[in-house]
């Protein structure tokens, strides 16, 4: 079974911060991206695959396939950086069986009626609801964009959100 060394929620998926910082920091040798839209977009997927650093294998799975593959053999082997674009997909794959112990919210993009809680991370009520349910299930949730940031715990973030 593969070891999930980092589970990151980042609406930009694979991008500069992930490639230059988190892959090194987590010592991952695989990136598993869970995204229905990316899995269906051959051209964009190829760009993500091509931009992987040397020695790191990138795969992209739909939510359903991610759950299926996890339940088959826990993604096989290696050190996996699991990357998801939003909390809806995170909650769905968690409930499907991918019981990660920790999640890192690293980037959730702005839209009207979303509130900035830390750096470039925004939340809305639906997100908060999902985070609370994940926390109640025993998941440790932190907010951190790059390794140089001090990670913020959900409790602190929630206070900011409700302020």
């Amino acid at each position: 079974m593969a070891e999930i060394v980092l589970c990151r929620i980042d609406s930009r998926l694979i991008h500069g911060q992930v490639m230059t910082k988190w892959v090194n920091q987590s010592q991952a040798n695989r990136i598993v991206v869970v995204s229905d839209s990316l899995a269906a977009d051959e051209f964009m997927l190829e760009i993500y695959l091509m931009s992987a650093p040397a020695g790191v294998k990138v795969e992209c799975l739909s939510r359903a396939d991610a759950v299926k593959k996890w339940n088959e053999d826990q993604f096989g082997s290696g050190r996996v950086l699991l990357l998801l674009p939003d909390l809806a997909s995170t909650k769905e794959v968690y409930e499907g069986g991918i019981k990660v112990t920790d999640i890192q919210v690293g980037g959730l993009g702005g839209a009207p009626n979303r509130k900035v809680v830390f750096q470039n991370i925004t939340l809305d009520d639906a997100d908060v609801e999902k985070l609370i349910s994940l926390q109640e299930a025993g998941v440790n949730i932190i907010f951190q964009t790059i390794p140089e940031d001090v990670p913020q715990d959900f409790h602190t973030i929630l206070k900011k959100y409700n302020n």
């Binding site: 930009r12 694979i14 991008h15 500069g16 051209f43 964009m44 760009i47 091509m50 931009s51």
Partner: peptide, 16 residues
């Protein structure tokens, strides 16, 4: 600027 960054990802999609 950087291949693998959001700038290039967006540019690639639009350029194509």
């Amino acid at each position: 600027d950087v291949f693998g960054g959001t700038t290039t990802n967006a540019g690639a999609k639009i350029g194509r």
